[in-house]
Amino acid sequence: MNIRLQLFELEDQQWFPHVVRQGMQDYLRFMISTLSTYEAALPLLEELLMKTQQQHITDLCSGAGGGIAGIRAALSKRMGVPVRVTLTDLYPNLDAYEYLYNESKGTITFVPEPVNALAVPDQLHGVRTIFSSFHHFPPHIAQNILQDAVDKKAAIGIFEGAKKSWTELLLLWITFPIVIILVTPFIRPFKLSRLFFTYIIPLIPIGILWDGTVSLLRIYPPKKLMSLAKQVKGAKYIWKAGRTGGGPGKHVIYLIGYPEGSEQVNEQVSG
């Protein structure tokens, strides 16, 4: 599926109820964590940290922090150093962030105030990451997010947990309604509102199916990601884009970029 359609997602809308948005984000975090969706991205994240001599990740557009606890723990083990993460979002999911902070014993922290990925505050350092969210932005805004990273000489990794295929779209509509009903009671932190908007007034399942469908259609394929990166001006960067991973729920589309000291910018596109 090489097309990209700029449709709208419910959770992007300011009028959309925040309690339902949080419920959808909590479900996404649960599924990404359970399936270890971003396991295949670990070597790429390690490359970003090693090349820039960083041990800290500033995660943008964090949602409910899907999968970040497992990613942080796995990176720390691979690198032999304690990697730390700061979660940020334009609409911070504070309940989820506090849960992750406590579960990680403070190795995952968060910014409680809104953070705009287009203008990341100077005090937020480290490698920037965006998981499962870059597709929300139309091309001109997506490019400006990359531009802000380059302007501040920050390494950045964009990761989407999908292969972007028609098969995934079909499986979404066949399996997700059942899965949502089965797993919702096990999502933590526990919330009565999540149960209410799943089983009584099913706004969360409806929102997940609509936004999940639109997300697959909005995801940038690797060549488009590289095209956006090539339009960024400023410091010389190494850019790589492609697909990695395999198996159900294990595919990842990615773009990574970090400052490069020579006169040439290296580009690598796969998939």
Rank of each mutant, 00 (worst) to 15 (best):
Q123W: 13
S215F: 09
K250T: 10
F197A: 05
G242E: 14
Y91M: 10
L217V: 08
I219C: 11
T52M: 01
E39S: 11
H136F: 02
A64G: 07
W173H: 10
Y27V: 14
I200N: 01
E39Y: 11
Q147P: 04
R78I: 07
S33T: 12
F8I: 14
A64Y: 02
T37D: 06
D26G: 09
R78V: 11
G126L: 09
K233W: 01
F30N: 09
V252R: 13
K191Y: 00
E267V: 14
L28I: 15
S270P: 06
L75C: 00
P222C: 10
Q264H: 05
Q6F: 14
D89L: 01
H140G: 01
L203D: 08
T37P: 03
Q55A: 04
K240N: 12
A142F: 00
I178L: 01
Y99V: 08
G23N: 07
M31I: 15
G66C: 09
V183W: 07
L169R: 08
S227A: 08
I141D: 00
Y38A: 08
A235E: 13
L217K: 12
L45I: 01
M50W: 00
V115I: 14
I206T: 08
L10G: 01
Y101V: 05
T34G: 13
I174C: 03
E168Q: 13
L209Y: 09
G65L: 00
F197I: 00
D122A: 15
R188C: 13
R21D: 07
F16L: 07
L42G: 06
G234L: 15
S262D: 14
Q6N: 13
T86K: 03
P92N: 01
F30P: 06
Q25K: 12
K152Q: 15
I71R: 03
L170G: 08
A73I: 05
L90P: 03
F137A: 01
L90S: 06
Y237V: 15
Y220L: 11
G70H: 08
Q123Y: 15
I141N: 02
Q143F: 02
D151Y: 06
E103H: 09
T184R: 11
I145S: 03
P202D: 06
T58P: 01
K223W: 13
Y101F: 12
P114C: 02
A142G: 09
V265M: 09
R128Y: 15
T107P: 08
E11T: 05
T198Y: 00
E260S: 13
L195W: 01
G106K: 09
F190G: 07
S270M: 05
W166M: 11
V111R: 08
P221G: 12
E113H: 09
G65Y: 05
Y27F: 15
R4W: 02
W239Y: 15
H140F: 03
V214I: 15
I71E: 06
Q6R: 11
R29E: 12
E168S: 12
L48K: 02
F8D: 12
I57M: 02
Y220I: 14
L60P: 03
A229W: 14
R128A: 12
M1Y: 10
I219K: 13
Y258F: 14
I57Y: 00
F8K: 05
M50G: 05
E11C: 04
K163P: 04
G126I: 00
V120L: 10
L255V: 12
M31N: 14
D95W: 11
D148G: 13
R243Q: 15
H135E: 04
G212E: 10
A96W: 09
Q13D: 07
W15S: 11
L28Q: 13
Y97M: 03
G257Y: 08
E263D: 10
L45A: 05
G67I: 08
W210H: 13
